[in-house]
Simulated assay, not measured.
Amino acid sequence: MMTELTAADGHRLDGWIEPAIGARKGGLMILQEIFGVTDQLKGVARHYAALGYEVAIPALFDRHEKGAVIPFDQGSRGRDMMLASDLDQTMLDADAAVQALAKNGGKVGVIGFCWGGGLALRAAQVLDVGCAVAFYGTRLTQYLDRPLKAPFMAHFGSLDDHVPPEMREAAKAALPGMEVHLYDAGHAFANDARPSHVPAAANTAHARTRGFLALHIR
């Protein structure tokens, strides 16, 4: 269901909440691609809710356009909103979701995809989270200015032209604690609503993510 979250600066944003099924293990925040809170991301939320996590997806475009959901074939529109976003404000919005989940008890984990993957890295540096996972996180070079505060796992496609090898290597050098997994795939390999989907890579990455969450969110 969609609810309202309030950031520390007073900004109000939407947040999709997927209640945990069965015994609640903790919270999990999912950070969006450049397409908004899509039905595909809600499906990811249901997957992890079925494992016992209460899941929140903050609507990070609400500062620009309330309720914006961008069709996958209109990526340039989403990219423009992403580029117009202020990182500090975006992290305030992400933290609003973390705080809402934390109120219900337990630690809070983070999973981010694409733009949200880079933001998941930032969350592991500046937010009070138990761990964070990035799926093909982009724009990594802007997040290498401070150390990790929480365990961080990253999944990359070896053929991803959004995250070239030199970017991955720079991140590994700057953040030696990050756990990196590489897959024979391109960008957005875990998005099952796009032609880029590579089921074998996605399944393996999610299995590793489930184990990582089980280790750190309890």
Results as ranks from 00 to 15, higher is better:
residue 10 G to A: 10
residue 11 H to S: 04
residue 13 L to K: 02
residue 13 L to V: 00
residue 13 L to W: 01
residue 14 D to S: 09
residue 15 G to R: 01
residue 15 G to Q: 06
residue 15 G to P: 02
residue 16 W to Y: 10
residue 17 I to Y: 10
residue 18 E to I: 01
residue 19 P to D: 02
residue 20 A to Y: 04
residue 21 I to C: 02
residue 21 I to Y: 05
residue 24 R to I: 05
residue 24 R to K: 09
residue 25 K to R: 14
residue 25 K to N: 06
residue 25 K to H: 07
residue 26 G to T: 06
residue 26 G to V: 01
residue 26 G to P: 00
residue 26 G to S: 04
residue 27 G to T: 02
residue 28 L to I: 00
residue 29 M to I: 14
residue 29 M to V: 14
residue 30 I to F: 01
residue 31 L to A: 05
residue 31 L to C: 08
residue 31 L to M: 08
residue 33 E to W: 06
residue 34 I to G: 13
residue 35 F to T: 08
residue 37 V to Q: 00
residue 40 Q to L: 02
residue 41 L to Q: 03
residue 42 K to E: 00
residue 42 K to L: 00
residue 43 G to C: 00
residue 46 R to H: 07
residue 48 Y to C: 05
residue 48 Y to L: 06
residue 48 Y to Q: 09
residue 51 L to C: 07
residue 51 L to A: 07
residue 54 E to V: 09
residue 56 A to L: 15
residue 57 I to W: 06
residue 58 P to C: 10
residue 61 F to H: 13
residue 61 F to P: 09
residue 61 F to W: 09
residue 63 R to L: 15
residue 65 E to I: 15
residue 66 K to V: 10
residue 69 V to P: 04
residue 73 D to N: 12
residue 73 D to H: 14
residue 75 G to D: 05
residue 76 S to T: 12
residue 78 G to R: 07
residue 81 M to I: 05
residue 81 M to L: 11
residue 81 M to A: 05
residue 84 A to T: 03
residue 86 D to I: 01
residue 87 L to A: 01
residue 88 D to N: 08
residue 88 D to Q: 09
residue 89 Q to R: 07
residue 91 M to R: 02
residue 92 L to K: 15
residue 94 A to I: 06
residue 95 D to G: 08
residue 95 D to V: 08
residue 97 A to H: 08
residue 102 A to H: 07
residue 102 A to N: 05
residue 103 K to E: 12
residue 108 V to I: 07
residue 110 V to A: 02
residue 110 V to F: 04
residue 111 I to C: 00
residue 111 I to M: 01
residue 113 F to M: 07
residue 115 W to Y: 12
residue 116 G to H: 04
residue 117 G to Y: 03
residue 118 G to T: 15
residue 120 A to I: 13
residue 121 L to N: 11
residue 121 L to H: 10
residue 124 A to D: 10
residue 126 V to T: 12
residue 130 G to R: 06
residue 133 V to P: 01
residue 133 V to Q: 07
residue 133 V to I: 12
residue 134 A to G: 13
residue 135 F to T: 09
residue 136 Y to Q: 10
residue 136 Y to A: 04
residue 136 Y to D: 08
residue 137 G to Y: 10
residue 137 G to A: 15
residue 138 T to A: 15
residue 138 T to P: 15
residue 140 L to K: 10
residue 141 T to Q: 15
residue 141 T to M: 15
residue 141 T to H: 15
residue 142 Q to G: 13
residue 143 Y to Q: 09
residue 144 L to G: 04
residue 145 D to R: 07
residue 145 D to H: 11
residue 145 D to E: 11
residue 146 R to H: 14
residue 147 P to M: 10
residue 148 L to G: 05
residue 148 L to K: 08
residue 150 A to R: 03
residue 152 F to S: 05
residue 154 A to R: 08
residue 156 F to N: 10
residue 156 F to S: 09
residue 158 S to Q: 11
residue 158 S to K: 12
residue 158 S to L: 11
residue 158 S to R: 10
